[in-house]
Nucleic acid binder design. Structure first.
Lengths: 235, 235
DNA sequence: CGCAAGATTGAAGGACATCAAAGGGCGTGG
DNA sequence: CCACGCCCTTTGATGTCCTTCAATCTTGCG
């Protein structure tokens, strides 16, 4: 994997929602303490139940945050793209990670000790504002997801998952918009809150209608507006 | 409705998760600006989509926070008991209320202008810590709810709703533990993410088994551990 | 070429939503 | 005080959505 230059690291930090707006000196503190981790695809970043020893900022790649309930059924709470923070609530509140984070592509993570972040936040009001902003946004988002999970049918939820994925890691190809990270039907199912049988069948149906092209570990969306109509429709 | 004494108001504020830990002078500012509102049961406190002009702290009663999706299907995100804050994310982030709040019992609400709260938070790091704590807790909670909604069956979700309600507003009666606020089958259904037919049928089944007593707008739990077993069981 | 992981497809059954109809409880007005 | 009407609730019937199991197929890789 290609290493990130110091400049890349600096830019990623000062553009991130957490460190945004820090002045030069403060940012230097952050940069001095950073550790850069490179991970291959499908590597565990942290595990549900672990004590949060570190905060992460994804510089490059793609990460899945998923929770396992009592049954052992995994649910993906969120997919994380470059520039986003991982584990913020656990670190801020000093509770064990409520979910497991796994890279879905070769990734580069910037990471800091939790204690160091807590120290910084404590004396820096700007950081505290940013933290509140991030967590507030997460809360809103989860509330929407909950409402959708409670009221929408599987077809709509799968459509939404696809729309979200193309928005996050969509890559323009001649035929349309491809999800730029290899994801199995199972991966999609965990995002949509169903099983891979349903995803497979739904993909087949949409493929027949010319809405998508479904291949092993890959999907390309041909007709975005059709998907949006399905995701938005009442019944 | 019985008015709250000044002492009650003061105690409610300084015990609340938001104003906790403020010193006397700071708390005075808060108390000077407070407005006390008394609402009958089933009154709308704020409506989804409104701009967040005020922050609320429930002093007495019970409030339902529910979201309406595109279909018009309502989902209850949360039930709020005395001492808890309403609308915190909307006020902190200055976005329109993402849900509607309605009293489920005669209630007393303490309320402040959003602008005043924002000003206070801005100059008081303690308040900012508390705000972050509150929102972080909400995020965690919503993540759990989402996982459960995605993986659990209706029976388990109804059991959980009952357990949650008895924990929040349970009242000891000779037969067992009664939900101390009148709630229709429809209200319970919105919490559990289903319809009132399912709730009615499930209640009937549990009543036959001697686990609960179901009456019009009222439920009494006779066998708490049976309900817990149902809520926790894998299949 | 053969294996393993991913993906498809059919069949069967259960869980759940939906519709229809009718049965109580409670307050209001006569 | 009784009757009426409204809302909450129950209950059955029906059909659909979805899960689950089993078997087979495909794809990529060693």
């Amino acid at each position: 994997m290609s290493n990130l230059s110091d400049l890349d690291v600096q830019q990623t930090c000062c553009r991130s929602s957490l460190f945004r707006g820090l002045d030069g000196v403060e940012l230097d503190d952050v940069l001095k303490a950073v550790e850069v981790r490179e991970e291959q695809s499908r590597a565990v970043v942290f595990r549900q139940g672990d004590t949060p020893s570190r905060l992460f900022l994804l510089a490059k790649g793609f990460v899945k945050i998923s929770q396992i309930n009592g049954d052992g059924t995994p649910v993906t709470l969120r997919m994380i793209g470059p520039g986003e923070i991982l584990a913020c609530v656990a670190v801020f509140k000093q509770i064990s990670y409520p979910a497991t984070a796994m890279t879905m592509a070769d990734s580069v993570l910037l990471t800091w000790p939790a204690s160091m972040i807590l120290g910084l936040i404590d004396k820096n009001p700007r950081l505290k504002d940013n933290a509140l902003e991030i967590v507030g946004h997460r809360t809103q988002d989860l509330a929407h997801q909950l409402t959708r999970m409670a009221t929408e049918r599987v077809e709509q939820r799968i459509a939404r998952a696809l729309l979200c994925l193309t928005a996050q890691v969509g890559r323009k190809v001649p035929e349309g918009l491809e999800v730029g990270v290899p994801l199995s039907r199972q991966d999609i199912a965990e995002i949509a809150g169903t099983d891979f049988y349903n995803v497979s069948r739904q993909f087949q149906k949409w493929a027949d209608q010319g809405i998508i092209i479904a291949r092993r570990l890959h999907v390309t969306v041909l007709d975005l507006s059709a998907l949006e109509a399905i995701a938005g429709k009442s019944h």
